[in-house]
């Protein structure tokens, strides 16, 4: 299972687009970059560490020597790369359930895209255009992006508390300790090995 390292799954998908559509997609992303609703939804879903969409023009595949044959392509390609937590099915299901408008706006320019609803045809399409990762590195394999964000909140509260608490009287410390524990108590989940992907 080379697509998985710890709690992260590496997805790659490539879809063909008619070249006249590429500027429209880029325009969409440009506007999106400004208004950021997709960014907000992705943040709220909170199971993607990093993701990117890369438009590759039909003449943009790197050519490094004269001996390398020149590509002769009719289509531009949309490359999607994601580092997500959870299982493949969970990921696609979630996209289809709550992010379908954003997804459709991104992929409707691709050939034969069936739409993200109903989910079965969408899954078939994704698995068809997906290609597998050969090597995947993860700096913190035992942590999902939720775990990371929780830990950062804990660290921030902890740093403050550690700096201020030692000079308190024991009675004041006890009260401060209670407040500190209350503040970090939603963020104390264990890290570890993820369940088996399905």
């Amino acid at each position: 299972m080379t697509n998985i390292n710890g709690k992260a799954y590496a997805m790659n998908a490539i879809t063909p687009m008619k070249p006249w559509k590429t500027p429209l997609l880029k325009l969409f992303f440009l506007v999106l970059g400004a208004v950021k609703p997709l960014q907000k939804d992705l943040k709220n879903l909170s199971f993607i560490h990093f993701a990117r969409w890369v438009c590759i023009g039909r003449n943009a595949f790197p050519r490094l020597s004269d001996e390398q044959p020149t590509e002769e392509l009719k289509y531009d390609y949309l490359l999607f790369i994601s580092n997500f937590n959870g299982t493949w099915n969970q990921y696609i299901d979630a996209f289809s359930a709550v992010l379908y408008k954003g997804l459709d706006a991104i992929w409707l320019w691709s050939e034969k895209y069936p739409g993200s609803r109903p989910v079965t045809a969408f899954k078939r399409y994704i698995s068809f255009v997906q290609f597998d990762t050969d090597y995947y590195y993860n700096a913190y394999p035992h942590s999902a992006t939720n775990d990371v964000k929780a830990a950062i909140r804990v660290q921030s509260a902890f740093t403050k508390f550690a700096q201020t608490s030692q000079s308190l009287s024991p009675a004041d410390f006890q009260e401060a300790w209670l407040s500190f524990q209350a503040a970090v108590s939603p963020d104390l989940g264990a890290t570890g090995i993820a369940p088996i992907g399905t």
Binding site: F47, D147, P186, A194
Partner: peptide, 19 residues
């Protein structure tokens, strides 16, 4: 199977890590 695997035996959706 999803409920058992993801919500009983794992905690990420509830933002509880591996609890």
């Amino acid at each position: 199977e999803f409920v058992q695997q993801q919500w009983i035996e794992y905690g990420n959706d509830a933002r509880l890590g591996n609890d």
